[in-house]
Design a protein around this nucleic acid. Structure first.
Lengths: 339, 339
DNA sequence: TTGAAAGCGCTAACAA
DNA sequence: TTGTTAGCGCTTTCAA
């Protein structure tokens, strides 16, 4: 059914090595032979078998990309950016969505090794497991370049958002607005530095951290934010502001407040994190810490490509910190211009 | 660096075929040999080379999935559902986001053939090109099962949302609410049947279709909806309701109306299509036609798997129509319960 | 400029 | 139950 190089060679009356040569443009082949072979290739609709080629070349031209959840706008956009970037560099991206499940996480990494990915971009859910670490070590041991977004994995180059700083700025913004009882919703699915930034901001401004104002939820989606706020609300504790580990959590929390008759920002000011597209569409438009997805994706790809071009012995571990930006909108109570 | 089956055989003092046998669980191997080999495999951290295996088996266990735009919530979710489904059936999914560019569309399909995907799920942007058709034919000619979402590609099994009916129901809902000047924003990136449904509903209820109320925009995203409404507004034409080809277009249109001082739903009622997650979060909550993504993804996978299990000669072209459901929320002017 | 031959790492007859 | 051998479709020496 599918023509092979053998049939092309036979039909053209040359050897398979000659066909291979015109295919790869290596060595020199006479004009006449080239034309003859090209003709037959067209006629037979021959396409070299990528798999066979891969086996010899030891290069799949494929990069594995592991993200926590594709249905989360943030990761979907990130994946798109990275895939585009890699495509222009001749690589295909194998996107893997782990749905925040540690088992899937390591399973996909394992697959990356089995399938001989040329490199891996790992955007973990921060509660990755020991198994994940083992897989990453295996990958490294096999000489497969790995770069990661955010987590500190020993010996892996990474791009990190400046979460501590980002959160610090966000919470300071709330403090400056005069809020004094600032709650926090985060958890293992969100960078721990955001919690640190929250604590740091409070302490720097002379506030005691009230652990009762902190809710650590399991996931990083709408429902988790919703539950987080319900728990906060039903505890009876009072708060006049809320910082959420990401925008989706904030959306969920606001929804829960709406249902409980708490007005945002009149009763409680809210700040999120990420600045996903819908943050500006939401009512009230969400004040949030912007992570420049485009830049982050770009840096991840650059970092990976750089590693790919360096011999394993010469590779160095780099860490690139991407600054964040506070985007002030309605939800934090100040009516500035909408961005 | 990486151990091969040869080294395992040598180390274990058996032949490579014996190693292969314990690897695949084929034939019978003595308990003792199995243990011996397993030990060595562990010791050497041997993993069979997927690529080499693939070459012999003529099966990559990989399915290509082509979607128009991953950063669109609808497609991100769809991709996640399909990837999950396929993963449980032992397949890896290669997700390709074409960004609505016909060239990328056909380029990715070409890649699916080159890389010997076992099957392809094609969720086209409806303005796919001739080149796309050629690539799909090539795929079929090579015996690669292709199933598609929505478009009518000759000889390709497909799952289609019942867009004509869905739109009809939506527009009839507006008519019943008493709106008489119903505008439409759609275009090539959105199923043409939605436009037909719009026209049909109007005609069935004795309205003349006013072409001035129709705006065909290029893409399917927020910005396109925004532009569509601006164009509609600046033309000076009057309208009291608006049906949009998808939710994102509706969001954009509503944003533009907001800026123009047009209130939704008080001045203009709006209905979208898809029921993406943020539709219920939006203010006003969006009335929209729900497409059951989970079901659609499920059906696509089933259809593909079925085709995969059928010998090429016995394959039949099937078309599965998925019913839609009108979800009434605030934007269309009736204050029913929020879903 | 071309061809013959040796593999890449594995599976799968066919023997033993 | 195990080993030998012949490929899968291609690239790449090495000769001619």
């Amino acid at each position: 059914m599918k023509a092979t190089i053998k049939e092309v060679a036979k039909e053209a009356g040359v050897s398979i090595s000659t066909v291979s040569r015109v295919l790869n443009g290596r060595d020199r082949v006479s004009r006449h032979t080239i034309n003859r072979v090209r003709e037959v290739i067209d006629k037979l609709q021959f396409q070299p078998d990528f798999v066979a080629r891969t086996m010899i070349m030891k290069k799949t031209s494929t990069i594995g990309l592991v993200v926590p959840q594709l249905s989360n706008e943030y990761w979907a956009f990130m994946s798109e950016v990275i895939q585009d970037q890699l495509w222009t560099h001749g690589y295909t991206t194998l996107i893997c969505s782990t749905d925040n499940e540690p088992e899937k996480d390591s399973a996909y990494l394992k697959m990356c090794l089995e399938r001989r990915m040329d490199g891996v971009i790992y955007c973990s859910s921060p509660h990755y497991s020991t198994e994940t670490n083992i897989q990453i070590d295996l990958l490294k041991a096999a000489g497969v370049p790995v770069v990661s977004l955010d987590p500190n994995i020993l010996g892996v180059s990474c791009v990190v958002g400046d979460h501590l700083q980002g959160t610090l700025t966000a919470v300071e913004h709330l403090i400056r607005c005069g809020y004094t009882r600032i709650a926090y919703i985060g958890g293992p699915a969100v960078s721990i530095e955001r919690e640190f930034g929250y604590r740091k901001a409070l302490m720097m401004h002379g506030f005691q951290v009230d652990e009762g104002l902190i809710r650590l939820v399991k996931g990083q989606s709408f429902g988790d934010g919703y539950e987080g706020l319900r728990s906060l609300h039903s505890s009876g504790i009072s708060f006049d502001a809320l910082f959420c580990g990401n925008d989706l959590l904030a959306f969920g929390a606001i929804k829960a407040m709406e249902e409980a008759g708490i007005r945002v920002p009149d009763d409680v000011a809210v700040v999120g994190y990420d600045d996903i597209f819908s943050a500006r569409l939401f009512k009230p438009a969400l004040t949030t810490v912007r992570q420049p997805i485009q830049d982050i994706g770009q840096e991840l790809v650059n970092l990976l490509l750089l590693t790919l071009e360096t011999e394993p012995e010469r590779r160095t571990v780099r860490k690139i910190v991407i600054p964040t930006e506070l985007i002030i909108r309605e939800s934090s109570g100040i009516r500035l211009r909408q961005v």
